[in-house]
Design a protein around this nucleic acid. Structure first.
Length: 436
RNA sequence: GUCCCCAUCGUCUAGCCUGGUUCAGGACAUCGCCCUUUCACGGCGACGGCGCCAGUUCAAAUCUGGCUGGGGACGCCA
């Protein structure tokens, strides 16, 4: 037995789907609690449903857990423990607490023990007035155990000091408590964490955007940001703090501080947090993150100069919500087949062909095409032409990117290079020529 | 239908356990101003909340009850 302050907890995913937001947070809470108490964190794969469990899901779940920054001390597979569950079922049959029928085993609830109390660390005592049925299947006719049964046996045998799981399991708990008692096991403590709701308040579902951790990774969210954001749903480090790493959270995390209220998932806030984490990265870290992210994405043209690409990415670093924003925002730096966005029409209404032509000539004659020189020349030219700087900035930005918004214009020009800048300016002049 | 859980700004939350220090603090979003090369970033500011009704108390966001509202569970799925 471990000393009582060292927790033994588990996360018990079922490989019948990808690791989703809710599961990830339950996992996070378990992991944090185990690490906080210097206890043990067990992964238990609940793959008793042979038809629906898939290797691909298992791989993905494990991958996501690691990606988020967690690790585990032990891992078990329920599919390898079927004999064990059958043995315990047989014990119950022998004791007259269960019976066989149609190859299945039915557990008989002890109704003398109807008032089941749950000792819940988050919610206090929960008392149930009724038990829904008189009996429960514990071994299905195919010989596999049902959830409540295998869950009880494993939580007891693996000596869980605390069962941390979603609130949706509260109603399973009285059934399980009765089984613990029938089996002669001591009943663990429970901590039922609130559910994560969709932005609309209902259940999280694919209809309302990504639900799996994998999808967020694919979309260019950083593991630290996801973990941090998930932590903030139903838990707070206090002191008006929001940005916190797992390593820091581990020191102060208390399961009793998890609140009872279901929290709505906010994509806006996640985006904000992700951008914070991107900004905090050093240029080198950011660049390798982008490189890793772009693998297999087929975004960059084949023979693109790597140094050029890096400069482009750096241009956008502090203004991304997620790495995939690059696909839309930075595309103009790699391809020149873009068209001008619909919302730039207003800017292009005023025909500045003559002025842009002068600017292109000045740029062609410029000794050093770096952003300082470009800016100086740009401002001077605008003034000479009787324009405010910004009257020239807007259309030039559209010329170069097709967009109304973007990074610093002069730095962008330096990165793009003289040749490309001049060519794109001419393209805008042609556009005016064709559209007037 | 039965059982269970929950209830502070639009959203996430601090405060609630141990009632007065709170005409409730922070963050996201929104809006405004400043900076500026547009957006963004940054800075400043605004908007906005203790669901309702009783009760306890000198005093309630904080304690109690009811109501209302939201959520969950009722599979030989997990």
């Amino acid at each position: 037995m471990k000393s009582s302050d060292q927790a033994i907890v588990r996360f018990a995913p079922s490989p019948t789907g990808y690791l989703h937001i809710g599961g990830a947070r339950t996992c996070l809470f378990n992991w944090l609690y185990a690490r906080h108490t210097k206890g043990k964190f067990i992964l238990r794969i609940e793959d008793t449903d042979l038809a629906r469990s898939k290797q691909e899901y298992l791989d993905e779940i494990l991958e996501s857990i690691k990606w988020l920054g967690m690790d585990w001390d032990e891992i078990y597979y329920q599919s390898k423990r079927f004999d064990l569950y059958r043995d315990y079922a047989q014990k119950l049959v022998d004791a007259g607490r269960a019976y066989r029928k149609d190859d299945a085993v039915f557990f008989k609830y002890d109704f003398a023990n109807t008032n089941v109390e749950i000792d819940d660390l988050i919610r206090g005592k929960i008392v149930f007035n009724e038990l829904p049925k008189e009996e429960e299947v514990i071994i299905k006719k195919d010989g596999t155990p049902t959830y409540n049964f295998s869950c009880c046996i494993d939580d007891a045998l693996m000596e869980m000091s605390l069962v941390i799981r979603g609130e949706d399991h509260i109603s399973n708990t009285p059934k399980q408590i009765l089984m613990y008692k029938a089996l002669g096991f001591s009943v663990p403590q429970f901590a039922h964490v609130p559910l994560i709701m969709s932005e609309e308040g209902g259940r999280m579902s694919k209809r309302y955007g990504a639900t799996s951790i994998r999808e967020y990774k694919e979309d260019g969210y950083l593991a630290e940001a996801i973990a941090n954001y998930l932590l903030l749903l139903s838990w707070s480090p206090g002191g008006n703090r929001e940005i916190i790493t797992l390593a820091e959270a581990k020191d102060i995390f208390e399961i009793k501080k998890v609140n009872k209220t279901a929290a709505a998932f906010s994509m806006d806030k996640l985006n904000w947090m992700n951008s914070e984490y991107i900004k905090k990265k050093s240029p080198e870290e950011y660049l390798s993150l982008v490189e890793e992210y772009l693998k297999g994405k087929n975004f960059l043209p084949d023979n693109i100069d790597k140094e050029y690409a890096k400069k482009v990415f750096l241009l956008f670093k502090d203004r991304l919500s997620k790495l995939s924003d690059l696909f839309v925002r930075a595309r103009f730096c790699f391809y020149d087949d873009y068209t001008y966005d619909e919302d730039t029409k207003e800017i292009l209404q005023r025909n500045l062909s003559k002025e842009i032509k002068v600017l292109a000539e000045k740029f062609s004659a410029l000794a050093n095409f770096n952003h300082e020189e470009v800016e100086k020349e740009f401002r001077k030219t605008a003034t000479d032409l009787g324009l405010k700087t910004k009257e020239l900035v807007h259309p030039v930005r559209v010329a170069l990117s097709g967009k109304k918004v973007g990074p610093s214009l002069f730095e962008t020009m330096e990165v793009l290079g003289r040749e490309r800048v001049v060519a794109m300016l001419k393209r805008l002049i042609d556009y005016w020529g064709a559209n007037v």
